[in-house]
Amino acid sequence: DIIVVALYDYEAIHHEDLSFQKGDQMVVLEESGEWWKARSLATRKEGYIPSNYVARVDS
């Protein structure tokens, strides 16, 4: 799995977006363009995230 960590807070604009806080970790489910589908490890919610707001966690 690709794990990313939030670099900034993000408040969902559309209902399919995923809100998150700086430091939150998410599993990337699908990478396509600038918006990635991800699942929050904390809340288990899924939605689209702006890929420029996150960084990959080296395992």
Rank of each mutant, 00 (worst) to 15 (best):
D1F: 14
D1Y: 14
D1P: 14
D1K: 11
I2L: 12
I2S: 09
I2H: 12
I2Q: 09
I2G: 06
I3Q: 05
I3L: 12
I3W: 08
I3D: 02
V4F: 09
V4A: 05
V5T: 07
V5A: 05
V5L: 06
A6S: 03
A6K: 01
A6C: 07
L7K: 06
L7V: 06
Y8M: 11
Y8E: 08
D9E: 05
D9A: 08
D9P: 08
D9T: 09
D9Y: 04
Y10S: 02
E11D: 12
E11H: 12
E11A: 11
E11L: 11
E11Q: 12
A12K: 06
A12R: 04
A12W: 02
A12L: 02
I13P: 07
I13H: 11
I13F: 10
I13R: 13
I13S: 10
H14F: 08
H14W: 10
H14A: 08
H14N: 11
H14S: 11
H14G: 14
H14Q: 08
H15F: 12
E16F: 14
E16H: 15
E16M: 11
E16R: 13
E16T: 13
D17C: 14
D17Q: 15
D17G: 15
D17Y: 14
D17L: 09
D17V: 09
D17W: 13
D17K: 08
L18S: 00
L18F: 05
L18D: 00
L18C: 02
S19Q: 06
S19D: 06
S19L: 02
S19K: 04
F20V: 03
F20E: 00
F20T: 01
F20I: 03
Q21H: 13
Q21D: 06
Q21G: 07
K22E: 07
K22M: 08
K22I: 08
K22N: 04
K22C: 09
G23N: 05
G23W: 05
G23H: 04
G23C: 08
G23Y: 05
Q25G: 04
Q25N: 08
M26A: 01
M26K: 00
M26D: 00
M26H: 01
M26S: 00
M26P: 00
M26F: 15
M26C: 01
M26R: 00
M26E: 00
V27I: 14
V28L: 13
V28E: 00
V28A: 03
V28Y: 02
V28P: 01
V28Q: 01
V28S: 01
L29M: 08
L29F: 08
E30N: 11
E30V: 10
E31Q: 15
E31F: 15
E31G: 13
E31Y: 13
S32C: 15
S32I: 13
S32N: 13
S32R: 14
S32M: 13
S32L: 13
S32E: 11
G33N: 06
G33L: 04
G33V: 04
G33C: 09
G33F: 05
E34I: 12
E34F: 15
W35L: 07
W35Y: 11
W35R: 14
W35F: 10
W36C: 09
K37N: 05
K37D: 01
K37G: 03
K37Q: 07
A38H: 01
A38E: 02
R39F: 11
R39M: 11
R39V: 10
S40Q: 10
S40G: 05
S40W: 02
S40P: 02
L41Y: 05
L41V: 11
L41N: 05
L41P: 04
A42W: 06
A42I: 12
T43H: 05
T43Q: 05
R44I: 07
R44G: 15
R44H: 15
R44M: 15
K45D: 09
K45N: 09
K45I: 09
K45Q: 13
E46G: 03
E46W: 06
E46C: 11
E46M: 09
E46P: 02
G47M: 01
G47I: 01
G47C: 01
G47H: 00
Y48E: 02
Y48L: 09
Y48K: 09
Y48S: 05
Y48F: 12
I49L: 04
P50D: 07
P50E: 03
P50Y: 07
S51N: 08
S51H: 10
N52T: 11
N52K: 13
Y53S: 09
Y53T: 04
Y53D: 03
Y53N: 04
V54C: 06
V54D: 00
V54H: 01
V54G: 01
V54S: 00
A55K: 13
A55I: 13
A55G: 07
R56M: 10
R56E: 06
R56C: 09
R56K: 13
R56L: 11
V57N: 06
V57T: 09
V57Q: 08
V57A: 08
V57E: 07
V57I: 14
D58W: 07
D58L: 11
D58P: 11
D58F: 09
D58G: 13
S59R: 11
S59V: 13
S59G: 14
S59K: 12
S59T: 13
S59M: 13
S59F: 12
